[in-house]
Design a protein around this nucleic acid. Structure first.
Length: 550
DNA sequence: CGGTTTTGACCTGCGC
DNA sequence: GCGCAGGTCAAAACCG
């Protein structure tokens, strides 16, 4: 746990506070608003920055409104406003001017100031509460929307099952559309989008976990709910078991943790179709990132349990198991790219069966979300089978983050390629660390740096964009594809609130993960303002980056 | 001394 | 059935 997070939490500030300060005639220069933050483990060190640049004043207020103390991992009692403001507001005005006015008057002013301070605190607290209440309402609405959407999907699936020829007809239509130059959405992708929405829905439907609750007490509820949704949905098909990297197919196994090989054999009585289904669900999330370090920092504790020379790669592949809780089924493989040794490929599988620290939440929820997205896609086509001939491709010039969804058997894999175009949110750890931090460019799925993302992160981002905002420039059908690659680029026209929240969260991730607070915060603000403006840089792409490892 | 890493052996699935 | 490759086990070595 990075203790800096508590210091960073004092960023929280809103318009009420600003107006109160204005009333007090403290000439707070918002053009050069200096905010101080004291790190609890770094006493005396004050990080300062020009918090509200002139041209972004308006946005800055919104930003301050969006930066939830809860999302920063701080408690309400840490919500001290006076510390930073008093110290470093450039021209503190009355407080200091009273020095010459005599002692009694000074005391009166002090009392008055204290009273006002109490009021400000109360107001701030109230606004914060209201903010969280609104978030809860938003969650509720989203939940309702998603459940309706789920109903719709279910109905549509029933319909498509009734009509066996529908799939063929759809393909014909798609080809027809393609010929006519209309951007079209392959059937699988439409289903994928919808079901991804359902993933987020499963998350949102979790009754006892409002967003505020989750943000205050980070657990793995997010990811488990997302993935459990799919696992529950397929539990009648998937009998679990199997061998190797993905043994935790069934939720029961997942919750019980690591199951010895001998025990997994018992449940291995399934038909070939079921076996195929099970295989399809061994989803992995692979992360490609440039690093000289042997391993990326994802907030979890890992124990190496094996190393192998993989075929076609001179670099050995290392196998790690999560050791944050006994029996945690999560594993990861780490290997350097054969083509470019500076690229580190980390492949995650499984879901944590224990509470995660904020630092681990980000990666866990992201990988889990990506996996669930993949699983959604794999089971979403009408017959529950992946059509390996679909190859959809769109590469947009502004896309800076890359993700490949490879559904090639036996392990469908989402590859997140972070080796392109570094962004403001990408911070390197200081040299003394043997590991490094990374973030999704533009905050999409961000949070690898080690701080909680807002719960419905990746699935929501992908789901929404896949479902409603994506534009396919073309459809390419290939019968010789040895690996199924869905390629998809997304250009949101405006950042949805959840995305913005994710961005903020990602920004806080960077802040708490990186000692260079000022730069991190600047990057965060830039990121947020960029997404608020809907300038189109909130771009996510699922593209064809072949993972040589998979 | 307990936890982690190393490394060779072993197991299983898959293709031929 | 055989060989190969991926993945895991577990004993030994290592480390703080």
């Amino acid at each position: 746990m990075d203790e800096n997070s508590s210091g960073g939490g004092r960023l929280s500030l809103d318009t009420t506070l600003a107006s109160q300060l204005h009333k007090r005639k403290q000439s707070v220069d918002f053009d050069h608003f200096t905010l101080s933050c004291r790190s609890s483990n770094d006493a005396g060190r004050v990080a300062e920055m020009d918090f509200f640049p002139v041209e972004k004043k308006a946005c800055a207020v919104a930003v301050a409104d969006k930066v939830q103390p809860a999302s920063l991992g701080i408690k309400k009692e840490d919500f001290t406003v006076n510390t930073g403001l008093r110290l470093l507001t450039a021209n503190t005005g009355s407080d200091q001017s009273t020095v010459d006015d005599g002692l009694s008057r000074n005391e009166d002013d002090d009392k008055e100031n204290k009273n006002e301070l109490v009021l400000i605190r109360a107001e701030l607290y109230r606004v914060n509460e209201e903010n969280q209440r609104l978030r809860g309402m938003l969650n509720q609405v989203t939940s309702n929307y998603n459940s309706l959407q789920m109903h719709l999907v279910a109905l549509m699936q029933q319909r498509s099952q009734r009509n066996g020829d529908e799939a063929a007809a759809d393909e014909k239509m798609e080809v027809k559309q393609h010929d006519s130059g209309i951007p079209l959405l392959p059937r699988q992708f439409m289903d994928l989008g919808r079901l991804v929405g359902m993933s987020a829905d499963a998350d949102a439907d979790e009754p006892s976990n409002s967003s505020s609750d989750r943000s205050l007490s980070p657990t793995n509820n997010v990811e488990s709910s997302i993935v459990d949704y799919h696992l529950k949905k397929t539990s009648s098909i998937v009998s679990g078991g199997g061998r190797g990297f993905a043994r935790e197919d069934s939720p029961d196994q997942g919750s019980q943790g690591w199951v010895p090989k001998s025990q997994t054999k018992v449940v291995d009585s399934k038909s070939p179709e079921q076996a195929q289904e099970a295989t399809m669900r061994k989803a992995r999330v692979s992360v490609r990132a440039r690093s000289e370090a042997p391993m990326i920092t994802d907030g979890c504790q890992w124990r190496k349990y094996g190393q192998k020379m993989a075929k076609g790669n001179p670099c050995p592949r290392a196998y790690y198991r999560c050791t944050m809780a006994t029996g945690c089924p999560v594993r990861k493989q780490v290997q350097r790219c054969a083509d470019d040794r500076t690229i580190l490929i980390t492949t995650y599988e499984g879901n944590h069966n224990h509470p995660l620290p904020p630092a681990a939440m980000a990666m866990a929820s992201t990988t889990s979300a990506a996996a669930s997205m993949l699983l959604s896609g794999s089971m979403s086509s009408a017959n529950g089978l992946m059509n390996s001939d679909f190859l959809t491709r769109t590469m947009l010039p502004c896309s800076s983050s890359m993700a490949t969804i490879s559904a090639s058997a036996p392990f469908p894999t989402v590859t997140l390629d972070l080796t392109h175009s570094p962004t403001p949110l990408q911070f390197q750890r200081p040299p003394q660390s043997s590991q490094f931090q990374m973030n999704f460019p533009n905050g999409v799925g961000a949070g690898f740096g080690g701080v909680p993302m807002q719960p419905p992160s990746l699935p929501q981002v992908f789901g929404k964009t896949l479902g409603s905002q994506s534009k396919f420039s073309g459809l390419h059908s290939s019968a010789v594809a040895d690996a199924v690659k869905f390629q998809h680029a997304i250009v949101p026209t405006a950042a949805p609130p959840s995305l913005l929240a994710d961005t903020v969260s990602a920004a806080t991730a960077a802040i708490t993960a990186d000692p260079n607070f000022t730069a991190a915060l600047a990057a965060a603000i830039t990121s947020i303002i960029g997404s608020k403006g809907g300038s189109g840089n909130q771009t996510s792409a699922i593209s064809n980056n072949s993972n040589s490892n998979q």
